[in-house]
Design a protein around this nucleic acid. Structure first.
Lengths: 211, 211, 211, 211
DNA sequence: GATGAATGAGGGTTCATTCAT
DNA sequence: AATGAATGAACCCTCATTCAT
């Protein structure tokens, strides 16, 4: 005991990441891993706490209940993804270029955080679940950003107009998700590497919506 | 205990599949409905038995456990779908024509049995779950049939060859599933009707793989 | 095992007390004892089930939750008391005579089922508890029956009229309850015996309301 | 650890009861309110600390545990009541006069601090609980003071002698408590006002013990 | 004195599964 | 074949209590 070094050294007590925040972060990581691996229903708070290296009680100190920890995990990840999407958008360019960039970002994230994709997708199907509401809302943020670009593309003639923009957005996202599921499910496929995976997904999906 | 089976059965072999098979069928229907509505994990044997109008104990007379009843439901449905696919294939025609027919059949089934699609998809993501093994095997039967036609199309030049056939097959199926999820999730979308839904999905997906 | 004698002997299978009813009864008895001894909050379903000689799960087969088992215990006891009160009333006589009879019955029951009295009283104070609603409703049935006789007494001039009948009813019941608590709390007092206890309570309380 | 108390305290003994005593007082008030509203078992240290506007840890700095904070609340209130009783007694007068004064004081306090009455009464029934011991001891102080006057009345012939003095004391107190519960439980009854309530209780109870 | 964080022992409840009848 | 009843293992969650700072 007595390792209060950090703030003592530089005296910035105020913005020192409190110990609690560290634990909270560890819990989120653990929840991400466990839920991704076993699904929301099969994941237990016991296992999450254990994976985080803390007692079960502390999980309930930081999060109201299991649903909250799960939706926090998801929201934080989607926040990252949305930020990346917006970054792609802010760099400007044609609708097709931005779309390609978004899909690339999306596929990359699925590739890297497959567990989250599993969690989000599986919970999203459930109509009346406790989680489904929050999951759905989060995922719609992604769909909307994709949809926006497809509409731009429809306006400038680079994307086919015979199908609803939102329909196309959902199709592309579903396609990418399914590809990821398949590519990652086949364990041997992983060796192809991220770049190959992303390139294939983007190349294929990009073609589907061309005008 | 209970060894009066053999001779007793022989005595009325002809009319045996009466009560037992009826009950079994009712249980499968109930399981299909409940699991589709709440997901595998949240579905309880109690609710399934109650929905079937029988006692809980009888469910364990007909099925070994919860996993078995669920995978039986799935297998029977996939059997139907496979049969339809093979029927489409047996009518011959171009790869594109057969593919279109299969997607049409697939989209129709999702539209009509959305609960099953939900069940299959959500469980499939789970890597180590009890169900996932069986679900995966079943769904691969579908993928393989689609893949077969894509390979035919690649051979005759009607389908792009720059992407693995299996990759394309998975993409198309994922796309259709996502579309269904979205179209059926939006309650207002249901009024568009089955034909509109199927046409849109097939039209869009068919384009993605064109050479 | 194999003691299916009763119904076998006389063949009245229909009204044989099912095994489940026996268990249910045992659970109620156990709940009565445990809750009476430790209070509602401190009583655990584990202990109740164990006292009943069954597993914890079966308690939830017969009762929806802890509150239900507790309020069932209480309701059944109050039912008995109400039946006794009504029996006293049906025998006719002066208001004073009936009141005396009722108090006698009431004091006797408290004396014999002190645990229940403890439970009922302690829970009744709590305003917003889960139990309090049901407990209050049950106890009011007793108050009403006493009140009815006090009003009769007021009508015929044998009971003072300067105080609300309901107020007097409550006072008398509170008095008896407090006496019981005191008499039974002092362990040495138990030796005075039931008759002495009842006589004292009735004699004292009966005087308080005389005109 | 923490042995700097003695000399540190001595250094500023005069102005010591500053922050610490204030916090302690706030905790007691909060505990009084919360326990009164939800009962001892359902009250949580969290809620008490929050109601006091301090952290949970500080409650354990001032009180050993939950039982201590509760019994302190009770003891302080009973201390007040005892002081009032003794004040009534010190003013002299007939046994009947003093008794009336005591009941008036008692009824008034119940009326004003109903939450405390609830707490005391409900916990008192519990035989082996953690609280019951302390509660019982405190309440007996009240009973003894009432009993003392009843014995005086029995000596001078103003109170009936056919019933134990202690029995009568308990009866009267129980009566008042029950009346308070009833009067305060019926929300509409509150409008009658404190004076009416006290007068009724005293008038009724005073009569019960008259010789 | 005070705080936030952590602990860990249960408690209520659910549910897949089994079994006697 | 079928039923009602029973079991027991978890699971989610709460909360009194402790501790480092």
């Amino acid at each position: 005991m007595g390792t209060r070094s950090a703030e003592a050294r530089d005296g910035r007590k105020a913005d020192r990441p409190r110990k609690g925040q560290l634990t909270r972060g560890r819990l989120l990581e653990a929840a991400f891993e466990v839920i991704g691996r076993k699904g929301y229903a099969a994941a237990t708070m016991d296992e999450i706490a254990q994976a985080a290296g803390v007692s079960k009680g502390v999980a309930y100190y930081h999060f109201k209940n299991k649903a909250e920890i799960a939706s926090t995990v998801l929201t934080e990840a989607i926040d990252q993804l949305v930020a990346l999407f917006e970054q792609v958008r802010s760099q400007g360019g044609s609708a097709h270029g931005i779309l390609t960039g978004m899909l690339s970002v999306f596929a990359t994230m699925i590739y890297e955080k497959r567990a989250l994709a599993q969690f989000a997708t599986s919970e999203m199907w459930l109509g009346g679940g406790s989680m489904s509401e929050a999951v759905h809302d989060q995922l719609m943020r992604i769909v909307d950003l994709v949809c926006e670009q497809i509409e731009r593309g429809q306006a400038d003639g680079s994307v086919r107009t015979d199908i609803d923009a939102s329909f196309q957005a959902v199709s592309i996202i579903g396609m990418v998700a399914a590809d990821a599921l398949y590519a990652l499910g086949a364990e041997g496929a992983a060796d192809a590497g991220k770049e190959t995976f992303v390139a294939r997904v983007v190349g294929y999906a990009g073609r589907a919506s061309a005008a």
